[in-house]
Design a protein around this nucleic acid. Sequence first.
DNA 1: AACGCGTGGGA
DNA 2: TTCCCAAGCGT
Length: 391
Amino acid sequence: MTPERRALADARDRLGRDMLAWYDRNGRDLPWRVKGGPHPDPYRVWLSEVMLQQTTVAAVRDYYRTFLTLWPTVTDLASASLDEVLARWAGLGYYARARNLHACARHVAFERAGAFPETEAELRTLPGIGAYTAAAIASIGFGHRAVVVDGNVERIMARMFAETRPRPGVRKTLGDYAAALTPDGRPGDYAQALMDLGSLVCTPRSPRCAECPWTHDCLGKKAGIAADLPAKAPKVDKPVRRGVAFVLERDDGRILLRRRPESGLLGAMMEVPSTDWRSDAWDTAEALPHAPTLAAWTPVPGCVRHTFSHFHLELSVLRARTASGTNVEGTWADPARLDDHALPAVMLKVLTLAFGPAGTASGGDAGSDLGSSSSSDSATEAGSRARAGTH
DNA sequence: AACGCGTGGGA
DNA sequence: TTCCCAAGCGT
């Protein structure tokens, strides 16, 4: 460590006091947060931290409230079925989190009498709880000293110590810096203070250094490179995959859905049946043998574009009606009750393209013919509205 | 260790 | 419009 960095680390107690003072004045008011009070319920800390993994506060807010209303304790959550939990998680993304959340709840409720473990080491053994989340629960939920290292903390430390090596290789070093600056007092508040500083002041682009309690100690600011840190590895282009989705409507207006495999992309979520998703475009004639049943499949104008974490998807949609006796594998869903099902955003877009936005006058009506002139753009926007309207 | 894994909002 | 992401975890 350079002498400059050594001196910075030696200023730990003063920096900790300044950070906590800043938090007392500027800390955000969030549904899962208790400012200036006792430690919050570890269940609530855990629930919010899992939802916040790689996800914005704005996206989490309503989901958190819904979960807490439906399931006020970890035992309530553990008593729900996986399908119920997935249906309520639908739209939030990274669905392995929901599967792990359910498994973790069952473990805590039924193997530990509803009490979360307090130590990072024990927390780490639970499904969906890694190094960050374990430290967050230990500090925020139990008041134990723990070094919380998430994306915000990495960014703050990279700037404070003017660390120019790129992530993720430098992660361990940034963790060492974070440990050197973590004070002994008020562990939960300090952890949350760093989150808030990262979201309000030390932001990825255009940091507001004038508002930062650490601005006079920041080696990145002193060097004039704070805004450029942390260095990021070059991004790789996402490939495009293409497929054909089959929206099958029964005479009574219900729609055929299927459950996806338990793991992998959108694992255990519901879907509209479709072909494989591959790089080559599909011919209608080539796609038809993949349809769930023989029927008069008609193209729906427009297409669904959706971006996953690692590829773009373009789905064209075929639609057909079938007699009520048709025997196919899957579930016949009432289109007026789509939020009862664990439908990821991409599948909501498919149904919106085929039928129009849920909640419109004819939406879900057996004879409706909405969406006949939908463009891909309107399908995307309508899909967002449909999801937003369910919360 | 590197990669697979979603989504909606903001610049 | 297009790009960039945001409080990571599991394998």
